[in-house]
Amino acid sequence: MRRFISIVIVFGLIMFFINTLSLLPKYGSVNISKVSEAYIDKNVNGNGGNVKYNESESLENGAANVVTSIVVDYRSFDTLGEVTVLFTAALGVSLVLNGIRRKKYGRRPNFILRVSVGILLPLIILFGTYIFIHGHLTPGGGFPGGTIIAAGILLLYLSNEEFDLSKTPKFVEGISGSLYIVTGLVGLAIAGVFLINFLPTGIVGDLFSAGIVPIVYILIGFKVGAELSGIVADLHREG
């Protein structure tokens, strides 16, 4: 009975959603908005336009990856808020679980796990670092890079009974979060706007381009990696 009523409710809901489809543009033929147009042409302040890879120089934002330029430059304040939400979630986890000792599984991890972690871990950390350093050129950035590093820490936890990150995540997290805000305040002091891109932006497509975007993304990478590693560490504690 309960199942039947639920199916009816859900069916009605889906029908309601499908009815609203007439208000939406057809799939695959959305009109690109003026705001997105300005972000793509790097033309928000009215001095960009016609960006060309490897040629355009000193634009208001030199990131080749347009998504990165939105996340870390044009809407950086929004990202600061989202990172704060993530920090609050990590804080909540450690507050609710409040473990002290490292949880032991009581048996030695098997041979294959131990050896393969020894080989894979440096590669995973290297890959995560590559992802967040090249965030302004290739797909990726601080958020996936930090997650990949946290996955590496998880492997370390599973393969080694003695390993424990006691206070390191909190420390790294606090330092990188503060540096993010300091970067914003330096922009406020130099150009009068919080989190403005105050460094020279270089040629689109170079590794050293895009002003503060790589710096902020590296900080976000450390922050997200530390927070998610902290969550993994908290789930491994008891007592």
């Binding site: 992802i131 797909p139 990726g140 958020f143 996936p144 997650t147 990949i148 946290a150 996955a151 998880l154 998610l228 993994v232």
Partner: peptide, 11 residues
């Protein structure tokens, strides 16, 4: 896609 792969399938 890269974020979802790292988060959804891994962590």
């Amino acid at each position: 896609a890269i974020t979802e792969a790292a988060v959804g399938a891994g962590l």
